[in-house]
Simulated assay, not measured.
Amino acid sequence: MRSAEYDAFGPWIMPVTSREEIPPLYRGHGLDPATARLVLKLPRNIARRDATASMDLYDHLVIVDDAALTVLSRRAGGYDERVIAHDAICAIDYGTDLLDGWITVYSADEGEQGRAPALALSYVGTSLDVVEKLVSLLRSLYRTGTDRDGDRSPGPAAGGAAGLPPLGQRDLGDRDIALVTRQLAVLRAEPRMRLLGYHRRQLLASREGGALRRLVRLVRPVVLHAAVVCGDAAELQVLHRRDWVTRGRRPEYSLASTVLPLARVDRAVLADDPRNAGVRVLTLHCGGSALELVVPAGSLTEQALVAQLGDRLAR
């Protein structure tokens, strides 16, 4: 047995533009793609040779309309539905680590039926361009005022910060040229954005001393990875690696973006990292969601985040 869906199946995120393209599992939902802004289907993480026409081949159906983001997710015997109103979105984190891609949408909702307020989806990294289109659409729908109306003229960042000159290719060192390239792409595509802060990759010392701890970190160093902060009057974009802190000497290939609508942050807490010296952990609270950013103490990154958060920050 064959079907058009089976014949087209692969590891890619696919757009859905007609009722016939909706995976059979989700057709009872009543979705009409013609009335949505964007509909995407995310495939199961299986090899093409292991797929059959009788399978439910798509793990998720993502629907964006004027009111909300809706995600239908496959489970045994059916699917679950999650709806996040655009005005409840308080952060979006997305990126790739080689072929491993992810997008996490943080919601101000407290969650229901034991579910976390953050919604996380995985995908094959070759579909990053489709995910970027999804993120751009969500941002256009939750932003208000002139930004939502499409005003792309230059404007100040929150707090009146004028911004820094764009980073040069090797300003973060040879290992983080990808972050510099990403920063340049953001500033080119979004004229209202300004470079507000950054820090370079650095090795971390343990907050607790001792010869053994120093020896362990010499053999397996603890690394705080580089990051870049861009922003305007409405949002922050933090460009970073998938993990802020890693152990060991392996090369880092991941590239992540965290988008933060400033108006959605209820409060922020800045505290010393209990394990690593010279490091601060910034925890952003929005309804039921909490998001952590890790920065060097006193760095331009820390200064930019503190300035943008203003009176939401508790120390």
Score class of each variant (00 low, 15 high):
66 D>W: 00
66 D>F: 04
66 D>A: 07
66 D>H: 07
67 A>E: 10
70 T>A: 08
72 L>E: 11
74 R>T: 04
74 R>P: 09
75 R>E: 06
76 A>W: 11
76 A>V: 08
78 G>F: 10
78 G>P: 06
79 Y>M: 00
80 D>N: 10
82 R>E: 11
83 V>T: 10
87 D>W: 09
88 A>D: 15
88 A>L: 11
89 I>E: 01
90 C>V: 13
92 I>L: 05
93 D>T: 14
95 G>Q: 03
95 G>N: 00
99 L>T: 00
99 L>F: 01
100 D>M: 05
100 D>I: 03
102 W>Q: 11
105 V>N: 01
105 V>A: 03
109 D>P: 06
110 E>V: 15
111 G>T: 14
111 G>D: 03
111 G>W: 08
113 Q>E: 15
115 R>S: 08
116 A>H: 13
118 A>Y: 14
118 A>L: 13
119 L>P: 09
121 L>P: 06
122 S>I: 08
125 G>V: 08
129 D>E: 15
129 D>I: 09
129 D>R: 11
130 V>N: 05
130 V>W: 03
131 V>F: 01
132 E>Y: 07
132 E>K: 08
133 K>C: 10
134 L>T: 05
137 L>S: 00
139 R>K: 04
139 R>G: 06
140 S>D: 01
143 R>K: 05
144 T>H: 04
144 T>L: 14
147 D>L: 15
147 D>P: 09
147 D>S: 14
148 R>M: 13
149 D>A: 15
151 D>Y: 04
154 P>L: 07
155 G>F: 07
156 P>C: 08
156 P>T: 11
157 A>W: 09
158 A>M: 12
159 G>N: 11
161 A>R: 09
162 A>F: 10
164 L>S: 03
164 L>E: 12
164 L>I: 12
168 G>L: 15
171 D>F: 09
172 L>T: 02
173 G>I: 09
176 D>V: 14
176 D>N: 15
177 I>K: 10
177 I>L: 12
179 L>W: 13
181 T>F: 13
184 L>E: 13
